[in-house]
Each structure stands twice: as C-alpha cells, then as structure tokens.
Amino acid sequence: MALHSLGDATRMALGSIPVRRAPARRGAPHPTGAPVRRDSIEAGTFEEMFFAVPARGETDRLARMVRAALDSGRRLRRIERRGERTLSAAERQLTRLTGGAVRVYEEICTLARLNQGRVFPSYDWLAEATGLGRATVARALAVLEALGFLVRQRRFRRVEGQGSSPRYAQTSNAYRPVLPRRIASCLPRWLRPAPPPDDVVVAETERRAANAAMLAGLNCRELAEALVGGALGRVLAKLGAALDASCESHSDPQPLPNSIRISANGVGLVGQHASWRPKPPPRSPTIATDLPKVGRVG
C-alpha cells in the first residue's frame, strides 16, 4: 500500500474539485483606456444635423400619441391573453410599452419644446425629473427607441490634461422625438398622420434624385466630407484625396515623347528596335509564274 504525505493527500483532494473560472473578456480594451461605448460620436460634431426644431404643437401631439399607444398596447395584451387572435410583430412590440416609458417620453418632449429641439439629458437627470430609477429610465429609453418614438445617439467628449495624449469619456446621449411609422396602423384613426399631398411627394422624389446625382459626381474626398463629419470625416477625406490622386495618375498618364515618331522600321516604340523588320506583303499569284511551262513542239 502506497504511503502519501499530508500535502500530497490535500493536493489530490483539491484537484478533484471542479474550479469555476471567470469568463474571459471579449474584445480588446480601448486604445486610450477610456470607457467609450460603441457607435459613439464626438460631441459638437453632429448636433447641427441631428437636432430639429419641432413645429408648433408637434411635441404635444407626440405625447398624446404615446399615451394612446400605451392604451392600445394594454388592449392588445388583453386580446392575446384571451386567445382571440395572434398579434403581429408591430403589435407585439407595442405591448412592451410601459407607464414609465410614457413618463420619460413626455419629459423628453417637454425638453424638445423648451430647448428648440436640443435634447441631451443624462440618465440621472431623467431619473430625478420623473421620479423613476436609473435602470427603469434605461429600459424605457431602449423600448422607445425600439418602437420608433425616439432616435438616440451616443456621444463622447475629449478630456484634456490627462497624460501626453488626449483622453475621451462618455457623456450624455442626444435624443430626438419622432413620429413612429411602423406602428401607425395600431394607433387610433384620429392619431394617424394624413397622407402628404402629391406635389410634396413629387418634390421629395426629385430632391432625392438630385441628391443621388450630386453624390455620384463627387470624388472620394468630397464624398467623405459630405457624408461623414468630425475627426473621422477628416481622416477619410485625407484618404480619399490620396485615392483621387492615385486614380488620376493611372487614368490620365503622361504620353511618352518618342511613342508617336514614325521611323523606317515601324511606328512608335515597336519600330525603335533594331531587330524588328516589317513583314513583306502577301504575294498575289500571276499567270506567268503560276502556270506550268509547256515545251515547244517543232
């Protein structure tokens, strides 16, 4: 019988116990070491194109619409619970709307009316204004964005004075309340938007065609400046300028000075080689050379 020391016995006993390891982190850390979330844009580079001044009474109409959507979602939830019919995808999304989401949306509409459409409150500010928890506010914003009532854009800002290179930190999101078109059929008829006139539809079609033609005529640098803003747009513009210069050099090369000279041996660069000789033209048959010779009979 083998003898084991106390240390060997303890090691053998602990080795048989499964050890639960922590899951490995996915992805690489941010180059600056700052907690910047995905799809974030630098603050101050896109707000002029993102925010829109609401029309007169538009925010009140959006608030009434989200309250009516809450009632419709509760009604659809009761219909599904009774088993009367199967809900569609848009109706099932509408059942996710809660009273907390409606309260958050009303506060965002109020900020849009007071601040000329510039809405960028933090989660803590919305939680303090609505009396809800921070997690409840985060869930409400996700539901509103999924339903189409809200457009949200993450932002980050540059922090100076921390190290030799600039650092970045996450800041509050930018919001824009919009009219959801995906669930318009689920709302009451008096809340559905009226169809636009035909002249407005034709003008919008012509505007889109002109915009597409304008973008098709731009080079790489101008296209980057027109579609992308901020630091990324400047980098893409420099890359596009390099691509444009490369394309111009390949598409319009400088002609060789000796390529058009006619020499005795040929035309262009081929005729400059001493070993090149022009091929003789094909010989056409003649009667005198091609007919067989017949002797003279005396």
Rank of each mutant, 00 (worst) to 15 (best):
residue 213 A to R: 13
residue 234 R to E: 10
residue 225 E to Y: 02
residue 6 L to E: 13
residue 19 V to P: 00
residue 173 N to M: 06
residue 26 R to Q: 10
residue 19 V to G: 03
residue 194 A to S: 10
residue 275 S to P: 01
residue 16 S to Y: 08
residue 255 P to H: 10
residue 212 A to F: 05
residue 167 R to Y: 03
residue 68 A to I: 07
residue 46 F to W: 07
residue 46 F to V: 13
residue 236 L to G: 02
residue 187 L to D: 04
residue 277 R to S: 13
residue 79 I to R: 04
residue 138 A to D: 07
residue 218 L to W: 02
residue 191 L to A: 12
residue 5 S to V: 11
residue 127 A to H: 08
residue 83 G to I: 08
residue 100 G to Y: 05
residue 220 C to I: 02
residue 11 R to E: 13
residue 138 A to F: 03
residue 288 A to T: 14
residue 69 A to N: 01
residue 172 S to G: 07
residue 171 T to M: 04
residue 168 Y to R: 06
residue 65 M to A: 07
residue 297 V to T: 11
residue 138 A to Y: 04
residue 282 P to G: 10
residue 67 R to W: 02
residue 233 G to W: 01
residue 75 R to S: 11
residue 224 A to P: 00
residue 117 G to I: 01
residue 35 P to W: 03
residue 204 E to R: 15
residue 177 P to H: 03
residue 29 P to Y: 10
residue 224 A to G: 01
residue 35 P to E: 07
residue 250 H to V: 14
residue 225 E to N: 06
residue 148 G to N: 05
residue 254 Q to N: 13
residue 124 D to S: 14
residue 99 G to L: 10
residue 232 L to K: 12
residue 271 G to K: 00
residue 261 R to F: 12
residue 130 T to I: 07
residue 220 C to G: 05
residue 231 A to F: 09
residue 255 P to M: 08
residue 248 E to K: 13
residue 191 L to C: 06
residue 275 S to I: 07
residue 189 R to A: 14
residue 235 V to K: 15
residue 225 E to G: 03
residue 41 I to R: 05
residue 243 L to R: 13
residue 228 V to P: 01
residue 236 L to T: 05
residue 292 P to A: 13
residue 72 S to K: 11
residue 182 R to P: 01
residue 225 E to M: 06
residue 141 L to R: 00
residue 75 R to T: 11
residue 54 P to S: 09
residue 123 Y to G: 01
residue 296 R to A: 12
residue 92 R to W: 02
residue 22 A to Y: 12
residue 213 A to P: 07
residue 34 A to S: 15
residue 162 Q to M: 09
residue 39 D to W: 11
residue 248 E to I: 08
residue 18 P to K: 12
residue 95 T to Y: 05
residue 148 G to V: 02
residue 145 E to H: 12
residue 264 A to D: 13
residue 183 I to M: 05
residue 243 L to C: 14
residue 246 S to K: 11
residue 257 P to Y: 02
residue 21 R to L: 14
residue 212 A to S: 12
residue 237 A to L: 07
residue 21 R to D: 08
residue 62 L to G: 00
residue 189 R to Y: 02
residue 197 P to I: 04
residue 149 F to I: 00
residue 55 A to M: 10
residue 119 V to D: 00
residue 173 N to F: 07
residue 232 L to C: 09
residue 56 R to I: 13
residue 81 R to T: 08
residue 240 G to W: 04
residue 118 R to Q: 14
residue 265 N to P: 03
residue 154 R to D: 03
residue 203 A to N: 09
residue 130 T to S: 06
residue 108 I to G: 00
residue 257 P to H: 05
residue 168 Y to H: 11
residue 201 V to Q: 11
residue 166 P to L: 09
residue 200 V to H: 09
residue 58 E to V: 09
residue 154 R to G: 03
residue 22 A to C: 10
residue 64 R to F: 04
residue 191 L to E: 06
residue 231 A to T: 15
residue 262 I to H: 15
residue 277 R to G: 10
residue 229 G to M: 04
residue 209 A to Y: 05
